[in-house]
Design a protein around this nucleic acid. Structure first.
Lengths: 358, 358
DNA sequence: ACATTCTAGTTAGAGGGCTTGCCTACAAAG
DNA sequence: CTTTGTAGGCAAGCCCTCTAACTAGAATGT
């Protein structure tokens, strides 16, 4: 079903250009001869493609010449991507806002972090972090991770009944629009964390269970994070599970009944939970077991990855219901940022390829 | 990311051929001039493409000539797909086995149905139904719907603990292999039913809840049925929900506690359930509500479609938990067969396009 | 009866992209 | 100073698609 486009010479040309561009992204600084080898195209074709891409401003002669210890032979010109723009990666968490710029090679070229004490500061800090990270660079798109549910269509943070609202009401699309000339992609931090685990592990079907101040979950099916109709997939606070007395109870209320929620908030008190005695923890684990059973029966994951501040600590207590499924602790550090960064890189590269098509 | 292939003239040619082939599938019997219009290609290009496809045996001159009341002008030759093979669609249900052949136009060209009284008869009846439907035709692939969980990798029917095993142990791939020269795709009837609803409604994200002798569910995310790692996604019999007394209980056991399971079997007694009084039905509905809450929180569907022998009857009693989500009765008739047929057609067409690439 | 009109299909040529093969430029090694 | 080996350019050929013009042939109209 691939390529529903019309057959034309222009299509061939753009495919050649894509090969050259992606090869330069994979290893910068290549001569035309090297490009011909890495892309599998012929030398004249690569020469033409490079000429076009230089003219478009996407590729530039670095000025460097070969001969650097590569034996005899005529000097060659090194080409690399021109100053072609970056992707902005933003992580909005209750503890602070982080902004990064990633270039098409996947390198983080700038970074800015602002701790905050109160969610209300986000609106003020976000533009500051963004402007510091951007620092005048051309930004082609932005990818945002936020610690709250995200509306898939608008990109706004939404508050669900009775679930902790850590970051607070915010429209990242609107706030970031002045900094860039492209799309702003917003998603939940748990979804990005799952994306990072997916990239790291290569597993196509798994569930990511996040246990922290908030309760979240992400589902990866057929190699993609599935966000659902509104982007609220995995908001498991109200999933029915086994309560302390055995009565069917919404997941989040289990913590209320156990006195493990922060006073005056819907968030879970992580410190108190980790300090709880074995009896309480076994009740918590049984509730988690009910949630994992739902994950397993509905999504059939190859593995349930558990992350978050207190999730991995209870790993050994978690059962998966009647079907035996592996349970593992999350392995990626800074998972949300890593996942968002990976997505930003992939989108930036695709955007450049699109740009080469005019 | 489309088209990672090498740029070559052959690629253009194959794209042209694909356009011509798919146009002939959409409306058979076209002259070269009509094909040029429908595909958007030029007349000489279409002429060459048709010549190649005729040579490959995929397209044939029908012998018919135009002039049928279409005014003056030179007579043209009508072309259509040659005798190019069919797809076999098989539905294996507790009540019987149905086999159909579908051609590349989407027409059912043959059909055979064999009722059975006992699941043990499937193994004997399946080859008979298949041979009757096939009747000597060239079969390029088979798509099978079975009323039991299907192992995604082997295509075998698997028995899960304590869930009704309606069709019984069977390896449809092995049984059907003698009848065809291509792949055999096997999946759960509920997944196919969801596929049919997806085609009919066009909704990209929804859940399909099947309530019959067995309990099943299918999830459609981003426009595809998601089967999970082993193909067991949606096997909800053991999902924890609200039991008759309020205690957290596996879904299937709710029916056991209410005395609604068939004696000596794990299946639900549909007749008795439909005849039950309101109090029992409200308990059932509350249990379903727990399941739907799990569906909604985990998958975030745009709508929950309810199908099966007794599902739609309880439609008004079903609640969706804290998030309001539409609940609707399934609308497609013969949903499993329809969904399997649609998939078979799509695969057959793709197979023919592949064949044109040699 | 014969010219007109209109459509199906073919032919000719141009444009352009990719490849192979060969050539030039040029630096390091001997 | 010659040899060797690499970067890059040039020319020819192939082949795919397109446009434009042309041929074939039947219905219409006078």
């Amino acid at each position: 079903m691939c390529c529903v486009t019309k057959p034309s010479q222009e299509l061939l040309r753009s495919i050649s250009d894509e090969h050259v561009l992606r090869s330069l992204m994979a290893s910068r600084r290549q001569t035309r001869a090297e490009l011909a080898v890495t892309t599998g195209l012929s030398k004249p074709t690569v020469g033409e493609s490079v000429r076009r891409l230089v003219e478009l401003g996407l590729v530039a002669d670095t000025g460097e010449r070969t001969q650097g210890g590569r034996g005899r032979g005529r000097v060659g010109s090194f080409y690399s991507l021109a100053d072609v723009g970056v992707a902005l990666v933003v992580m909005i968490a209750p503890g602070g806002v982080t902004a990064e710029c990633v270039d098409a090679y996947g390198d983080v070229v700038s970074r800015s972090h602002h701790p905050i004490a109160d969610p209300a500061e986000v609106a003020g800090v976000l533009p500051v972090a963004a402007v510091e990270a951007v620092a005048g660079r051309q930004v082609r798109l932005a990818v945002v991770s936020a610690a709250d549910p995200v509306d898939r269509h608008t990109g706004r943070l939404v508050q669900l009944p009775d679930s902790p609202f850590l970051v607070g009401a915010l429209d990242p699309v609107e706030v970031l629009r002045p900094f860039l000339g492209g799309p702003v992609i917003v998603d939940n931090d748990v979804n990005w964390a799952a994306q990072a685990e997916h990239v790291a592990s290569g597993v196509a079907d798994f569930a990511y269970l996040y246990l922290g101040e908030g309760l979240g979950c992400a589902l990866v099916s057929d190699g993609e994070v599935r966000r659902g109709h509104s982007g609220l997939a995995g908001e498991i606070a109200h999933l029915i599970t086994i309560g302390p007395s055995g009565v069917a109870t919404p997941f989040i209320e289990v913590f209320g009944e156990l006195g493990l929620r922060q006073t005056g908030s819907t968030a879970i008190d992580v410190a108190r939970l980790l300090a709880a005695d074995d009896e309480v923890l076994s009740v918590v684990a049984r509730a988690i077991g009910g949630v994992v059973t739902a994950l397993v029966t509905l999504a059939d994951p190859a593995v349930v990855v558990v992350g978050g501040p207190w999730g991995p600590a209870l790993l050994d207590l978690i059962t998966t219901g009647p079907r035996a499924v592996a349970v593992a602790a999350a392995s990626v550090r800074e998972p949300s940022l890593t996942g968002a960064r990976a997505d930003a890189l992939s989108r930036l590269r695709t955007a450049l390829v699109e740009a080469s098509r005019g």
